[in-house]
Design a protein around this nucleic acid. Structure first.
Lengths: 169, 169
DNA sequence: CAGCGATGTGATACAATATAACAAGTCCGA
DNA sequence: TCGGACTTGTTATATTGTATCACATCGCTG
């Protein structure tokens, strides 16, 4: 596995939610319950989730509480909001979404790039920030006068654990 | 192009095809042109491809040659055959297929990365190959013992022309 | 040339992804 | 508290991707 599996996810969740609240407060937008719950599901997992993964998870919880079910569009609306405010990323190559998990300042640093290492076998993801990568990208983009947004790189391959399994099989 | 990559996949393809021919000869089954072409597409990529990726690639080639288009089922039939004889793997979690590449370090040798600069406004794309970016990625991935395939980076932003228009409008 | 495996063709099943259109509810400042 | 903007609910449907069935035809090989 790419990341430690034995850490307590509640820490990640709390940090992500706190970070999101700060961002929304600063921008004067509303982090509603529904948006929060979508974010919480994403933050609880280091594997990118599809919109329908989130939908099923939330509806499962709601069913247990006897609440009404959500429709897909509710998830997409929340996702759209969270992406718009830089609180989550969309993994284009997978139609999946992940919470930014690098701490409150990562997003605001300039010239950094986000890297996702995506395991093709088990689906797990690890996120990194790299200044040198960001710099390199700016150099490349600068040569063709391209103005990059916060760059996100998706690298596919095999995580440590799956490489071991590959050796056996 | 900023940097040209001199890596030629023909080596990988030749080896995979040769292996497949040997396997089929040994088993007395036929590695037909169509099966070979599906295998070639898989072997040409270090990233797992979906059945429809393969279909589109082959049909693109066929279109250029003025040949008739293939239907999805043709691809599935070839895939089924190749899987059956252990020539390719199916990546269950991805609905994707990949050629068995017995050369253990093939994946690490390339050291190249592909970068797409995608304009959010006009949709244009520019593609680059970068060795230095590839090296940087290997460094980062190496820290967590992640084994990257040929990485593809998608950078969204504004191209030169659209930046100018943005200024005006 | 007969038989069988391979391929072509068209239809369709099924799931995942995503959005449209409109109604209803909720929040917040004036 | 009123009005408007934002948010959510509801229903329906578009779009794409994944996969298989049924049957006709081709073409290699014995």
């Amino acid at each position: 596995m790419i990341e430690m599996s034995d850490h307590d996810h509640s820490f990640c969740i709390d940090r992500v939610l706190a970070d999101a609240k700060a961002v929304c407060a600063e921008k004067g937008v509303r982090l509603t319950d529904q948006r929060q719950s979508v974010l919480r599901v994403l933050a609880a997992s280091h594997v990118p989730s599809s919109a329908y993964d989130i939908l099923n998870q939330l509806n499962k919880e709601r069913k247990e509480k006897g609440e009404t079910m959500l429709a897909p569009v509710s998830i997409y609306r929340a996702l759209e909001f969270l992406i718009q405010h830089g609180i989550i990323h969309r993994i284009e190559s997978r139609n999946a979404y992940v919470a930014c998990n690098e701490g409150p300042d990562a997003r605001h640093r300039h010239g950094e790039a986000t890297i996702f290492l995506l395991c093709d076998k088990c689906g797990r993801a690890a996120e990194f920030q790299s200044e040198s990568l960001g710099g390199l990208i700016e150099t490349i983009a600068g040569k063709v006068k391209f103005s990059p947004n916060a760059p996100v790189m998706e690298i596919r391959g095999l995580c440590e654990e799956c490489q071991k399994l590959e050796g056996n099989g």
